[in-house]
């Protein structure tokens, strides 16, 4: 009569099971995340390829346009248009030239300046300042 009346059963160890479920879940999640990242990597790679192609196309177009502008503004082209009468050279009247810098010779720095001829030295360094009336 003193015997154990509990039936002999295989008990489920919930803790262990839960640990395994959680571990498998995280491993699975990591796997999915890895696949997701890999896909993202490919998608971004494709985007990068498309952007590179677009940049390359724009650069090429830009270069083509620059070459066209250079051709259209070249001396030969401008001379041709001048000869054809599309352009006209208008002499600049001496009174329309404003000399804002003192005349400097071209030699020292290699920069060639136009409209800086000032034989009287009126605007050279040390020239007196004068009031300008309009």
């Amino acid at each position: 009569m003193n015997g154990n009346r509990r039936r002999p059963t295989n008990s489920i160890q919930v803790n262990v099971l839960a640990r395994w479920i959680v571990a498998v879940f995280f491993v699975g999640l990591a796997g999915l995340f890895f696949v997701y990242l890999k896909n993202q990597q490919h998608a971004v790679g494709d985007q990068a390829r498309l952007v590179e192609a677009a940049i390359s196309e724009i650069e090429a177009k830009n270069d083509a346009l620059k070459a066209r502008i250079t051709a259209m503004t070249s001396r030969g082209a401008l001379q041709r248009r001048l000869d054809e009468g599309y352009l006209r050279l208008e002499p600049i009247r001496d009174t329309a030239i404003a000399r804002v810098t003192p005349p400097l010779p071209a030699e020292p720095d290699g920069v060639l300046r136009t409209a800086s001829r000032d034989p009287d030295g009126r605007f050279g360094a040390g020239a007196p300042l004068r009031a300008v009336s309009r």
Binding site: A71, T73, S74
Partner: peptide, 13 residues
């Protein structure tokens, strides 16, 4: 394929 041609904007000059 990419490429380029050489151009001389001033022609004969």
């Amino acid at each position: 394929e990419e490429g380029a041609i050489r151009s001389y904007p001033n022609s004969e000059m």
